[in-house]
Amino acid sequence: MDEIRPMRAEVGIIPNADGSALFASGKTVAIAAVYGPKQLHPANKRKPDRGIIRCEYNMLPFSVSDRARPGPSRRSKEISLVTESALSAVTDLSRFPGSVIDVQIMILQADAGTRCAGVNAAAMALAHAGIVMREMVSSIAIGKIDDKIVVDITKEEEDWTEGEGSTDIPFSITSNNEVTHLQLDGYIQTKRFKEAIDAAKNACSKILEIQSRALKGEIVDENKGGKKK
């Protein structure tokens, strides 16, 4: 119940980008590319005192069994926005006023927890692009299935309807144990919520270790065991 699905992580998968990363947890696979800091157009969106992060989250049409219609949707805009705030909380944007950092996240394959995989990949890509950041960010979806707290829920678990049903709580937590993003979809008791926070912190420290290993040049694949690049 407190197990994360086997993770896979790698940086530098998109040579054209300034920074890029892949993060997979079980069947959920996300890739992220970072371009910038670069000049922001249109100029009226520029902030005179700081740069901005512009996130774009999208699912590829073949990522789910029902073809996902490409392009922005209500859902992908929401996820882009929460990812943006989860990441801008740790990045030092004051270094390049008037600039923009473009973060693009693509979901290659979806099995729940895509926004978390996206944040994990994007945080690695940002670090890989040499962006000045206070902390790393790791993200995990905690669920309550009936009355059990479950870490890293899958689509099957997410669709649970028996008993108390299912609750989905995505967390993004920094390496300093600060929460930068939290959503809650469903119902949960206050006492159980505290359990969920502890579970999330625990899981995020494990994810951080994977992210760190990947950034240090390893191709991490928990299905096979790591190998050197």
């Binding site: 692009a129 040499g130 000045v132």
Partner: peptide, 22 residues
Amino acid sequence: ANRYGLSDVRGRVVKIIPVSGV
């Protein structure tokens, strides 16, 4: 560390040498 790079300790001063970025 505030960014990704090579850490370098010279005497008492610790700094990071960037390996990537614009």
